[in-house]
């Protein structure tokens, strides 16, 4: 029985569990009190765990969106001709880029109040909202640096040509520089998205009910049996892999295409 369980664990963890075989062996030995097999446990809880996974995706998309918008602003700040704006933007970029994501998450969790009151309206700020803010901080810093790098990688002739055609600096940035940066930034930006998606499980540490939190709860609910550890967490790993791997493949394809074209 134990040997079988270990085998199952290994198979589930590898994502190769043959569905047809699963019920066959244990049934013969099963008594009414015998614990369920790892696979049936995973299948039983899969809908709940997947709901948790969707929550991870929601957090990742929202923090990516927020971080991208703020990051583009910060990146533009870095190339500002106003010295103090450039300095300040540089500082924030470096600070948030070189802090552990978990620290930034804690930072957001404990610095942001649990509710804000504007006049007579009280808006609660739930944990998942704070998590989005927390994850958007490293996204912001990385997008800022991506933008700065993309701008710097453009030949200076683009600026000169625009200048000599009497474009203002703002017009040059919006009409000529930024459109050319989009293509350069897209692959690393998608990479960053993958990373932030995988990092959303950190939110379990601060008690947000995402997939890893639920996985731990399910594990506890099933009596914390050691043999369930690998299948349950393996399932979580598989979900992230299934989501992030295609993104990484697409990123590689884009990188190759852009390299050939320009």
């Amino acid at each position: 029985m134990i040997a079988f369980a270990i085998l199952m664990v290994a198979q589930v963890a590898n994502g190769q569990a043959p569905a047809g075989d699963a019920p066959a062996a244990p049934v013969s030995e099963a008594t009414t009190t015998a614990p369920a097999t790892p696979l049936t446990v995973v299948l039983k809880w899969a809908p709940l765990l997947l709901k948790g996974f969707i929550f991870n995706i929601v957090i990742s998309v929202a923090s990516m969106a927020l971080g991208t918008i703020t990051g583009l602003l910060l990146g533009l700040g870095q190339i500002s001709q106003r010295k103090w704006v450039a300095k300040l933007s540089w500082f924030f970029t470096q600070f948030f880029r070189n802090s552990p994501w978990l620290v930034l998450l804690f930072f957001a969790m404990f610095m942001i109040p649990f509710q804000i009151t504007i006049g007579s309206v009280t808006i609660p700020l739930p944990d998942w909202f704070k998590a989005i803010i927390g994850f958007s901080l490293p996204v912001m810093a990385n997008v800022s640096e991506l933008l700065r790098g993309a701008i710097r990688s453009l030949p200076s002739g683009q600026w000169e040509a625009a200048e000599s055609l009497a474009f203002t600096r703002t017009q040059t940035i919006w009409k000529i520089i930024l459109p050319q940066c989009v293509k350069r930034m897209l692959p690393p930006w998608m990479n960053l998205y993958s990373l932030i998606t995988m990092a959303t499980v950190l939110a379990s540490i601060v008690g947000v009910g995402e997939m890893l939190t639920l996985t731990a709860q399910v594990h506890a609910a099933e009596g914390g049996r050691p043999e369930l550890f690998a299948p349950l967490y393996g399932f979580a790993g598989l979900c992230f892999f299934a989501y992030c791997w295609p993104i990484s493949k697409l990123t590689q394809r884009l990188e190759r295409r852009f390299n050939v074209k320009t």
Binding site: G157, E160, A161, S164, L165, I176, Q180
Partner: peptide
């Protein structure tokens, strides 16, 4: 600069715009 046009050794065309759009950009935007 509106009075003085300049052409460069490296052309410096805007690669994300067609030939026609390259020619049209400055009069429209500037």
């Amino acid at each position: 600069r509106r009075k003085v046009g300049m052409v460069f050794q490296q052309y410096n065309l805007f690669p994300h715009k067609t030939a026609l759009q390259n020619v049209m950009m400055a009069p429209i935007n500037v």
